[in-house]
């Protein structure tokens, strides 16, 4: 079961401090860009709860991200609601409900079946938004206004300020990190890790495996919804591609490259992959080609991700040749 070493804790504190202070010298472009990265880091972290801890490889996770964006878009554009007091619960609720429905159908299966079913059900939501003119069809739609957060005349948070949005994203990311860390230390977290290791044994011990998995699925979907809410506030644009399976594949790449089964891995993965993508895009219009090669290289040469690489380096440094295993 996972424990945080002192070195990892130090690195974590340093990284958080760096992110908190970054706007002091970062220019506008990078403040915006790092905000986006943090949104995707949160999204990836939510998927890691499923892939890295519960052993549930979902290829439809973008559905919960995208549906939150559409929940915001719908309320703002169609109902004129802009208060975050309404938008945030609505976005999280939409994601949680979608996750409960899709999870309920898919967790009864496992392995490749689970992969295919999550993909197909997420794609159903994709087509729902893609086919309907009401939701803007394939082109998507602009969200007319950013969310507002005010008590009477007092503005608590200005979503139009890129600095405030930056810190909101950072706070959400840190909050999600703490929440997941708490969950993973609880009996629920232990049950998840046990289920990944040996589902049948967990049943024999008396664990309601399906229920534990469904709870994990809904939590992960809801956190993806939080990322989706931030994405809506950040980009003010809803497009079906956000729910599409390329997006689901993309976020899976973030998790794997960073290192699944660790909370910092997906964050690391988001930073590395999004920065690389940005760099590749300056080289050529065909940057997806390079990404494809990159993804394949990661699978072939870095299957445990950057976190695995760090662990190997660390254990070599400590003079122990043997790896710590994957449990």
């Amino acid at each position: 079961m996972p424990h945080l070493s002192r070195a990892a804790l130090t690195a974590l504190v340093l990284a958080t401090g760096f992110l908190a202070l970054f706007p002091l010298w970062g220019d506008t472009f990078y403040i915006r860009f790092v905000t986006k990265i943090m949104v995707y880091a949160l999204f990836a972290m939510s998927l890691d709860l499923l892939v890295g801890y519960a052993g549930l490889v979902s290829l439809g996770h973008a559905a919960f991200f995208g549906i939150a964006v559409y929940a915001v878009a719908g309320l703002v554009n169609k109902a004129g609601v802009t208060s975050a007091f309404v938008l945030l619960p609505a976005a999280l609720g939409a994601s949680a409900m979608a996750a409960a429905a899709i999870g309920w159908l898919s967790i009864r299966t496992s392995g490749v079946y689970f992969i295919m079913i999550t993909l197909a059900l997420a794609q159903m939501l994709f087509y729902f938004f893609n086919d309907q003119k009401y939701w803007g069809g394939t082109d998507g739609m602009n969200i007319d206004q950013r969310p507002t957060l005010a008590l009477g005349d007092l503005t608590l948070l200005n979503f139009g300020s890129r600095l405030q949005l930056y810190y909101l994203a950072l706070a959400c990311l840190a909050g999600a990190f703490v929440l997941l860390a708490v969950l993973l230390r609880s009996p629920f977290g232990h049950a998840l890790v046990g289920i990944r290791a040996n589902e049948g044994r967990m049943r024999a011990l008396g664990y309601d495996v399906q229920r534990v998995k469904l709870i994990a699925f809904v939590i992960a979907g809801t956190l993806a919804g939080l990322a989706g809410f931030l994405e809506a506030a950040r980009s003010t644009f809803a497009t079906p591609a956000l729910l599409g399976w390329h997006e689901s594949g993309h976020v899976l790449v973030l998790v794997i490259l960073g290192g699944m089964g660790t909370l910092y891995g997906p964050v690391l993965g988001a930073f590395v992959v999004l920065l690389l993508e940005d760099y590749f895009a300056t080289l050529t219009d065909r940057w997806l080609l390079i990404m494809g090669v990159f993804v394949i290289a990661v699978v072939m040469f870095l299957p445990d991700g950057l976190a695995g690489l760090f662990r190997r380096v660390a254990s070599l440094a400590r003079g122990r040749g043997r790896s710590a295993g994957d449990g």
């Binding site: 892939v51 490889v57 290829l59 392995g111 490749v112 992969i115 594949g249 899976l252 790449v253 794997i256 699944m260 997806l288 080609l289 990404m291 494809g292 090669v293 990159f294 993804v295 394949i296 990661v298 699978v299 072939m300 299957p303």
Partner: peptide, 13 residues
């Protein structure tokens, strides 16, 4: 399976 998914996803790109 996870690695097979990622590898073939890379192939698609």
């Amino acid at each position: 399976h996870l690695h097979q998914v990622l590898f073939t996803y890379g192939l698609i790109l």
